[in-house]
Design a binder for these strands. Sequence first.
DNA 1: GGACCGCATGACACCGGTATCATAACCACG
DNA 2: CGTGGTTATGATACCGGTGTCATGCGGTCC
Lengths: 357, 357
Amino acid sequence: MASHEQGPERKRRARAQEGDSRRKHTINDVARMAGVSKKTVSRVINASPFVKEETRKAVLEIIRETGYTPDPQARGLAFRRSFLVGLIYDNPNPQHTVSHQLGILDALKGTGFELLVRPVDRTSPKLLEDMRGFVERQKLYGVVLPSPVSENEDLVALMKELGCRYVRIASVPMDDAACMVVSHDGKGAADAARHLADLGHTRIALISGPPTFRSSVERRRGFEAGLAERGLALDPALVKQGAYTYESGITAAGELFALENRPTAIFCLNDEMASGAYLAAREHGLSIPKDVSIVGFDDAPIAARLWPALTSVRLPLRDMGRMAGEMLVPDPLREVQADAHEVQPELIVRESTAKAG
Amino acid sequence: MASHEQGPERKRRARAQEGDSRRKHTINDVARMAGVSKKTVSRVINASPFVKEETRKAVLEIIRETGYTPDPQARGLAFRRSFLVGLIYDNPNPQHTVSHQLGILDALKGTGFELLVRPVDRTSPKLLEDMRGFVERQKLYGVVLPSPVSENEDLVALMKELGCRYVRIASVPMDDAACMVVSHDGKGAADAARHLADLGHTRIALISGPPTFRSSVERRRGFEAGLAERGLALDPALVKQGAYTYESGITAAGELFALENRPTAIFCLNDEMASGAYLAAREHGLSIPKDVSIVGFDDAPIAARLWPALTSVRLPLRDMGRMAGEMLVPDPLREVQADAHEVQPELIVRESTAKAG
DNA sequence: GGACCGCATGACACCGGTATCATAACCACG
DNA sequence: CGTGGTTATGATACCGGTGTCATGCGGTCC
């Protein structure tokens, strides 16, 4: 129960003074000044086709003069829907969150929509209940669900039930292709595989993420596909499962380096684990890239700061956010509603990869 | 002008069926079921003291049974104010933004308030105009202004003019102590200075940030104070100005290492520049910490991933966000309105600092 | 016993928009 | 010139809450 102490019923401060031209204009002011009813102004605002061109021009002129903008709350109340978009995320990588936010807001700019953020714990048993309350109370116009939240089918089902628009951001197409931005992580992983193969590596290891993450599954799949293109297969002995964390990268890479016939290259399914592999390499007296080549995924800020700088797969996170925002909020001015809502990862080659010794 | 294509005036879908117990309850339903007027329900919601205890109990019981929650839009419309808090930020460090968001939302949880995010370009000439529109249109309850946005006095003046509550997050107290969360960066910098001095360093260099950032000025001030405590003074020849960026760290550290009598320790006013110093050290064949000790500031994720792991000053970013949120949204249940809205930085000693050779 | 007071409550208008429906204005047609 | 079918517009109710003000009620004071 939200009980905001509002204090006793306050007197409204006198504001009916004659000189308060500073007061914000309402639809009534515009209507009066334009000599039409408020409903007609409403029609103009909502681009109704049933307004005479002449009337529309006159009203728009008054709107311009007064700087009037409709009150989103009043509009929302009448529409039974708000002009708010929710971003529901649970991603430990702040880079993702911030980039997505920037992208979504790129798309929302000038549309009158605003972005409400909602970090969640995807393992919480109350998640669905919380999200139902969130969407219903705020009457959200729509939500953006980046991975891994986008992989929660119960949550997606809830959005459908509530009639809440949604766009999923994920690494691989899912049921609802029309509501997705797909990053095709697999292609980036395949690029990494070809890159390593072309450098002459044959004993190539993989440090995967948790199998519950679609991105991990997809990156691995793409990696294997890329190797296959070069006539290589992933040796099961050279596959270690990590947890997308620094510590898990240290452990997994340590195990790989302890093998009798250790790999000459490692593909880590994210940069955090790649950082861990750097540390393990040092602990084992191995030099990067002379003794072992390392490739990461995400192109996190850290990738370029490590030494040697980490070769990694970059996702256009901001673009992905922008596309999600554009899909959510239809802009009549936008000409093409590109039906291909997908982006391509890009392999950024730095100094952590070299020819196989 | 926000013109959301709403399509033609739509028919309202029939929903007056008898069986739609699923429809969300309104204040009218609650009033009817409790046998009181909607105004009395309103009084209960708003914790008015003018309701008989018996009546209040009865109404609360109905509210509990029905799961009723007031519509924030309708409430906002009547209150002429929304239940939205804005986060206006312009910080290149995503860690800061995400941590602040988490903290603010910790404080907002259960209050019915939501968080609207707004990345801005603090150098944009349209900034003030944009913010005025943002605050006025959304009728924001309040805003959180982390640094460096918090240092924009024009923006703060605007908030005052608009009657919009605000909380600044900054490294040093400013005019409005009651509306601030202060991180006292200077103390953390002093800790760093004492740490280096106690390790026996005397030729200690400083790579500062842009002087337009209060944090940079404050960190430097604190650093000098810490040195002074140990009887040391900052040698002007060992001070280089950076720009809080990786590249500027490389350049500045490179210049320091090229000196005939190079420093044995460097304090970098953020971790990005410290990363640059790492690279410069390698380029000059210097080993960290044997040849040179390095201390950063921020304890960014990167600090623990660098090799050797970077000693850095950590700010409790999430706590800072939480405090800002708590100050903004008064919770009647909170007992003490702690008047000391400040946090202490903490020096995290890792492996990049060692005794002076 | 009547005037007066404070507490508790409700009737009603209002916040700033939109939906419904009636109606006015316009045109073509017979 | 009356009829009918658009097209354009406004009067009114309504969305779900809160502010204002009047009123009922029980008790105290003289």
